[in-house]
Structures are given as C-alpha cells and as structure tokens.
Amino acid sequence: MDRADAAPDTRPPLAVDIDGTLTDRHRVVDPRVFAALREWPAPVVLATGKALPYPVALCEFAGLATLVVAENGGVVCLDTDSHDELVIDGDRAAAERVAAAYREAGHDLGWGSLDLVNRWRETEIAVSRDAPLDPLREIAADHGLRVFDTGFAYHVVSPDVDKGRGLGIVADRLGRDSEEFVAIGDSENDVATFEAAGRSFAVANADDAATQAADQVTDTAYANGFFEALSTVRSSP
C-alpha cells in the first residue's frame, strides 16, 4: 500500500501523571519516557501534583508542547504555537493558614528551612509523608480544604480543584472532549482524571483509590506500567 494511502494514526491524546507513573519508586524519571512521550502522535498532557516549574521543565527537556495540569489541578498551563494561557485556581492563602495552624499544633511540614517543595506553589501546600496525617486532615477540614495523599506527599488543596477539572480546561482549549483522552496514573489525586478521561490505566504500584477507579490496572509497576499501558492502547482497535 502506498504511504499516502495508509490509514491515519488515530491514537488518542494522553493525560499522564509523573511521580510513580513516569518514574521509579525513588521518583527518578525513566529515561525511556522522553522518546515515548515526544513520539506519541496526539497531544500529551502532564497532570501532576508537582508545582508548575517541574512539569514545564519536563516538557522542555522531552521536546513536548507545554500542556500541563499542575498542583492537582490548581494550575493549568498551555504554551504552544497556537495556545498561550495560564489558569490559576485554588486558594493558596487558605492553604497557608492550614500550614500555620499545623505548625502551631507542634508539627512541621518536613522539608527543612529552604522548602523547595513549596517555594513555587501557587494554590496549595505540600507536607512530607513523614509528618502526621490525621491532624493535618482535621486542620484542613476546619479551613474548608482537603488533603490528597499522593504516595509521595500530602497535598492541602481547595475542595473544588482536581486534575480532572484541569484536564477539562486543557481539552476545551484544544477543541477536544476530555473523554477522548487516555489517563495513566497511580494515586488518589488521579481519580478525577480517570473519571474525566474516556479510558484510564492505574499502574501496578497504584494506591487503592486509583486501582478501584481505573478501567484497567497494569501488571507492571511505575514506568514499566506506563509503557504497558501505551502498548495496550496501541494494540486497541
């Protein structure tokens, strides 16, 4: 068959978590993902709990268009040839009040005095998983906020902010429906993305919330699970 007569590649756009999904258990990005993401023939959205500079840098070094949902949906960034927009949602001031009350209760955020984890956050606060969770949840609830346990940190976020909502914003700007996307992730903050997307995969290391919400759970963990999900999507009709 002539190349010009070949069927077009109809693989769907992706919404992919970073920590625990594109990494190993130590949060080291698997170098194989750079080519895999760059060569995917449809838009790739990085949807993460990390502050905006991290996924933007990953897009830069992977050679991807900047399509980012950061801070669990609190920040959405599109910086492409046809789109230039930054959407900030959530209440950083409220999260700061939770952090202050948490410290007053005798607890520490757990990142040391420099705290690079929170330095660039605009809508939430992240707390080390070495810190006690129950008092953090109680204080957050008192301030009308909630806490996500991503498996790498506790995130204090506004109740109406999540990755699924962020994905909806990106999809709308791209002229697509969020149900066109395949979502891949590993923790409870990915559940909203799974619900917004048309198809979802939890990698084998995923927590119970993500495992129960996903359409399919991979046999392999971390980045290997990501590649397994891609292989399944490629082979789907």
Rank of each mutant, 00 (worst) to 15 (best):
D30Y: 09
D84P: 03
L37D: 12
R27N: 15
E96A: 13
R25F: 07
V45N: 03
P55E: 06
A95Y: 02
W40Y: 02
E60H: 14
E96S: 09
V87T: 15
V29K: 08
R27C: 13
V33L: 10
L58V: 05
G90T: 14
H26S: 12
L46P: 06
A94Q: 08
L64H: 11
V44T: 10
V68R: 08
G74T: 03
A36W: 11
R97F: 00
S82H: 10
S82Q: 10
L37Y: 11
V76Y: 05
A47H: 09
V44Y: 00
V76I: 12
V75L: 09
I88L: 15
R38G: 06
I88K: 14
P43G: 02
W40C: 06
A36P: 08
H83N: 08
A51K: 06
V98P: 07
V68Y: 07
P55Q: 09
T48P: 03
E60V: 03
V76A: 04
D30T: 00
V33N: 11
F61H: 10
F34A: 15
A93P: 00
V75K: 09
N72F: 10
L46H: 06
C77V: 04
R38S: 13
L46E: 01
D89Y: 02
D89K: 13
D24Q: 11
G90W: 05
D91H: 13
D91V: 05
L58Q: 12
A70E: 01
H26M: 06
A47R: 11
T66P: 00
V44P: 10
E96T: 00
E71Y: 03
C77A: 14
P55S: 14
E85Y: 04
E71H: 10
E39G: 05
P31F: 14
L86Y: 11
R32N: 10
V44F: 01
T66A: 06
T66N: 02
T80M: 04
L86N: 02
V29R: 08
V87G: 12
L46W: 03
F61N: 12
A35D: 13
A47N: 04
C59Q: 05
A36N: 13
A95G: 15
Y54T: 03
V75P: 12
V69Y: 07
E39H: 14
V98H: 09
V87I: 15
A62Y: 05
L67E: 06
T48M: 01
V98Y: 05
A62P: 13
P55F: 04
C59N: 00
V45S: 07
H83E: 10
L78S: 04
D24H: 11
C77I: 00
V28L: 08
L64Y: 12
T80P: 00
C59A: 14
E96L: 13
L58R: 10
P31G: 14
R97M: 01
V45Y: 05
A94T: 01
D89I: 06
L52T: 10
V76D: 02
L78Y: 07
S82A: 14
N72R: 06
D84R: 15
R92N: 07
R97I: 00
L67H: 15
T66M: 11
T48Q: 09
V29P: 11
R92W: 04
A51V: 01
A47T: 10
D89S: 15
H26F: 08
C77S: 13
V76M: 00
R38Y: 00
G74W: 00
H83A: 12
V68I: 05
A57T: 09
D84V: 01
Y54S: 03
V98L: 05
A36Q: 14
